[in-house]
Nucleic acid binder design. Structure first.
Length: 418
RNA sequence: CGGGGAGUGGCUCAGUUUGGCUUAGAGCGCUUGGUUUGGGACCAAGAGGUCGUGGGUUCAAGUCCCACCUCCCCGACCA
């Protein structure tokens, strides 16, 4: 992509409203815009990042044996009455009535819908287990939206649901999802803690949360330095580690994932049964597994930035390489930049070429801001000696490379996943 | 919902205390021309504003009064 034709509205200053680092940077880097409180628009760069996270999730979920589907956003309220959650979730549900007078809501989550679906199509133990997931926009009328994408009223979530014939099967799937989650978050380039958590309105017994330590985190996790014990803060008591009795450390965190062993809460309420080998009716045992996909973008930035801007982890970056001709008016410089661009694109790299007119300073600042990990600086002075710079965003390291070896050097770096 | 703050061009803000030299300003950004080009350049000329909304007071309101709306921060909720 050529920057001069791209819609990347970067800003020098963030709006005063933005508080969290990730919110400021997402805004300044031209990735998101707020439409109204808690409601955001993804600009092209933001959407590219969202897409990359989604494809990591798809790869790991599929590898773990889950199948993707897409449920509806609009849900009949009737369905929610069957589990009683129409009242439990009344405050956050966005409800409306259509012209026929049907009572509907915009899905805040999908346990009811998926259970209804599975109930109608799974009748035999032979069809179990099955794990289904979707990546979809959820709607919650949050009491207090804040910190940009971290807590929004409209957000992208990956939600998966497992259906098993017995507890043992559930545990197996739970384990598989647990592992998939670890893979996903590692590939996203974030450090995270896993806590045993309260199941809340979801119900069920066992549940774990995936927490990302960050300044603008809304949750506090208690962490034991000595034995790595982790737990969510439930009461405001002085607590010591139950394992080794050392004082626990408080960490502010963002919850990016939550997995639950639901058991039969939904399948019972909605009558999702199957026949076993003996022809006996049994209740399906469920688990559910959520990832805050859009929130993950913020969490990643919270952990990957410096005073100049975002530093994307390789797998998340909207582009692999930024080609930066320092003097856009110099034909030799520009021609070489275009040559690198087309050669790299041909080799399958995602490349952004900053072909805009303007001074070097502007381009360097914008480059740092949008945080693409690899950058090629082509300047006329170095070019006189046949050299071009390859600079690494994270390490702030600049290597002078022979101008004929730039493309192969970049491809090497990409292969290494450095 | 309770407590605290704020709404003035796309972004950051000044002006509101004490109404009138404000035909509403500045910086950044934007347009045109020129000079520049390794870390957010310079000169010149431009475009862009219902001062959140409605009502009121007054000869006169961005500025005073009333009501409402919106946004942000602190608490309950959650991916």
């Amino acid at each position: 992509m050529f920057w001069s034709k791209a819609f990347i509205p970067t800003l020098k200053e963030a709006p005063q409203d933005a508080e969290a680092i990730s919110h400021k940077l997402l805004f300044r880097a031209g990735m998101i815009r707020m439409l109204t409180s808690g409601v955001y628009i993804y600009l092209p760069l933001g959407l590219m990042v969202l897409d990359r996270i989604e494809s990591i999730i798809r790869e790991e979920m599929n590898a773990a044996g889950a199948q993707e589907l897409l449920l509806s956003c609009i849900q009949p309220l009737e369905l929610w009455k069957k589990t009683g959650r129409d009242e439990q979730l009344a405050d956050i549900m966005i409800r409306f009535e259509d012209r026929r007078g049907r009572n509907l809501c915009l899905g805040p989550t999908h346990e009811e819908v998926i259970t209804e679906l599975v109930k109608n199509h799974v009748n035999s133990y032979r069809q179990l287990p099955v794990v289904l997931y979707q990546i979809q926009t959820k709607f919650r009328d949050e009491i207090r939206p804040r910190f940009g994408l971290i807590r929004a009223c409209e957000f992208v979530m990956k939600d998966a649901y497992s259906f098993d014939r017995d507890q043992k099967g559930l545990e197996k799937n739970y384990e598989a999802m647990f592992t998939a989650y670890k893979n996903i978050f590692m590939r996203c380039g974030i450090k995270f803690l896993i806590t045993e958590a309260d199941s809340g309105v979801m119900g069920g017994s066992v549940s774990h949360e995936f927490m990302v330590p960050a300044q603008s985190g809304e949750d506090i996790v208690l962490f034991c330095k000595k034995c790595n014990f982790v737990k969510t803060l439930t009461e405001d008591k002085q607590e010591n580690c139950p394992r080794c009795n050392t004082a626990l450390e408080k960490k502010q965190t963002i919850e990016v994932g939550h997995v639950f062993q639901l058991g039969t809460k939904y399948s019972k309420a909605l009558g999702a049964n199957f026949l076993d080998e003996k022809g006996q009716q049994q209740t399906i045992i469920m688990g559910c597994y959520g990832i805050g996909v859009s929130r993950l973008i913020s969490a990643i930035i919270e952990q990957n930035n410096d005073e100049d801007g975002i530093i994307w982890p390789r797998e998340i970056s909207p582009f692999d390489v930024l080609v930066l001709p320092v003097q856009s008016s110099n034909k030799e410089v520009m021609d070489l930049a275009k040559k690198y661009y087309s050669e790299l694109v041909k080799k399958g790299a995602k490349v952004l070429l900053d072909d805009r007119e303007g001074t070097a300073g502007v381009k360097f600042k914008d480059a740092d801001l949008i945080g693409i990990p690899l950058r090629i600086n082509i300047g006329e002075k170095n070019l006189q000696n046949g050299k071009v710079e390859i600079s690494l965003r994270r390490e702030k390291k600049i290597n002078l490379v022979d101008k004929n070896k730039v493309v192969s050097e970049i491809m090497n770096l990409l292969k290494k996943g450095a």
